[in-house]
Design a protein around this nucleic acid. Structure first.
Lengths: 330, 330
DNA sequence: TTGAAAGCGCTAACAA
DNA sequence: TTGTTAGCGCTTTCAA
């Protein structure tokens, strides 16, 4: 900025005024400064600028990691941000969410200086008292005081389980999600509800935790599939763990769907390219991202509307589930 | 930080030293300060911190927009960053790359202050003289002086065209990419080369530009498909335009692959979930992201190795292409 | 071992 | 219309 000022023969204050379209600058001077800025390809440093002014026009997206789920949300937010005048800064702490409180850390790292507001994805811990407006997607269990967006996890899980039951499955394994997340809790509740309604007793030894992550799914999937009375179907609480479950099954010599039916949750793009293509419950991830952005912008503008948006799910039938032959049913 | 200092009864300078593990602080004092920091959930503002010190341990990923291509790269970078000690900041300017020079703008916005280095995706314009190390993925035409990562676009395009040719197609439409990108140029060259080798003359009126974007693909796809002598197959320069081409075909009453074969390029996850599932040339996007990160970290550490990495492509056969019945061949 | 003071690149209030 | 000055939250000499 000093260079620009020197080149133009004015003070840095004047340059700043030109950049920010403040008035009190002669049209001629402004033009000259603009010229030089363009020539030198200068852009005010976000860090320094934000330090001093309050508004940055940047919205932060805080994720533990860029994996299929969070990136689908990001795609939705990105599509929706077009035309709003905001820019997007998606931030992932280095530890991939392994450290408790990563979202609080990232939030204070960025808020107050760099961003006007934040969308935080699957937070484990949040304080509603952040210095900037925050919207949570798929939040943790319990009240947070935050504006949130999620999908109807209960209904979706029930739908998945009903589908498996309708195919004749009676011994159904359940690979739960991250127990600190509301979504994981609701999916298990939906599963149990469907079983209860169908008069099928759930075998508690068939309920394990996959934690939404492929690597933490390995062990429980192995457990479930290597027992003599293994389930004929598995409902994995998200697509990534469902896909890993299919891989584990295949490594054990089981064919999906012939020997084992598997159903997931989310409908990330990877579900369609799995082998076999994964039957799953779709969350409208792109819409959820867009909705979160809408909520956040309202919050920033001080015109809060809804504080909680819940979007519907639907079943997507692909190739990973099969009806049990009638004579094999118990 | 002032609050912390007051609480601990020390100066902000001391707090800063504790945060940055500088020595010259009594173990006891340090412990007390750390305690309070933890209690208050404080984290130093990235903007302010970076303004003063040089190293931020943050790597920037600059994209025009979060769409399937760039997000696949981001996933690859994210997976590879684990354990390196770096964090990731993916930035998308608001205009979705419509403004020329968005990457230069984003770069100077972030560099010098917020990030230690940047990976820029499909840049149109770059100066190698940035204040931080930069690696380009899928760069623009012509020399840039930048370290780059790409895939073998020429071989991939030839492979795709050979495949179509082998299926008996002789009238093949080509929907090119963004003409400023090296990849688009190479894909067209590969297409022409394959035709030439097969002794098939290319009809220049069948070569149009889709620009890698669904919306800019609509018109040329319509053009190609509504002419009486429409091609029997279309090679679209990336998956997004291929998928849109299939949609346009279907809206025109053409069945894919029965009436029209379509092949894409990239193999983004969306290709597998298209209807019909898209046959395409796969780029190893995740590996490309990981490779770019490796290159960049080398650059940051001042131990530059390779300056240009080219990864191989391969054909992924799905359901969008069909052999032409022999009697229909010309 | 500690803290005062300067300054990173910028914006905002005010004075000239 | 312009420039001077102070200060955003932090790190870093350097003196106490």
């Amino acid at each position: 900025m000093v260079d620009i000022a020197r080149q133009a023969g004015v003070s840095v204050a004047t340059v700043s005024k030109v950049i920010n379209d403040r008035d009190g600058v002669a049209a001629e001077t402004a033009e000259r400064v603009r010229q030089i800025i363009a020539e030198m390809g200068y852009e005010a440093s976000l860090g320094a600028r934000a330090l001093r002014s309050r508004k940055t026009n940047v919205i932060g997206i805080l994720v533990a990691e860029f994996e299929p789920f969070s990136t689908e949300l990001v795609k939705g937010i990105s599509a929706a941000v077009d035309g709003t005048g905001y820019e997007l800064l998606a931030y992932s702490g280095g530890d991939h969410g392994k450290a408790v409180g990563w979202e609080r850390r990232s939030l204070s790292l960025l808020s107050g200086t760099l961003i006007d507001g934040a969308i935080v994805v699957t937070p484990t811990v949040v304080r509603a008292d952040s210095s900037v407006p925050v919207v949570a997607i798929d939040p943790h269990t319990g009240p947070s005081g935050l504006a949130t967006v999620d999908s109807d996890n209960f209904a979706g899980a029930k739908q998945a389980t009903d589908y498996l039951l309708a195919l004749g499955h009676r011994r159904i394994g359940f690979l739960g999600g991250r127990s600190d997340l509301e979504s994981a809790r609701l999916r298990e509740t939906g599963f149990r509800k469907a079983c209860a309604e169908a008069g099928v007793e759930v075998d508690e030894s068939l309920i394990l935790v996959g934690g939404y992550r492929p690597d933490s799914t390995d062990a429980p999937a192995h457990d479930l599939l290597s027992r003599p009375d293994r389930p004929s179907a598995i409902f994995a609480a998200n697509d990534l763990s469902a896909i890993r479950t299919m891989e584990v099954a295949q490594s054990l010599g089981l064919r999906v769907p012939d020997d084992l039916s598997v159903i997931g949750f989310d409908d990330v793009p990877e579900a369609a390219s799995a082998h076999p293509a994964l039957t799953t419950v779709a969350q409208p991830l792109k819409q959820m991202g867009a909705a979160a952005l809408g909520l956040l912008i309202d919050l920033i503008n001080g015109t809060p509307g809804e504080t909680h948006l819940r979007l519907p799910t639907h079943l997507v039938e692909r190739q990973s589930c099969r009806a049990i032959p009638v004579d094999a049913q118990r």
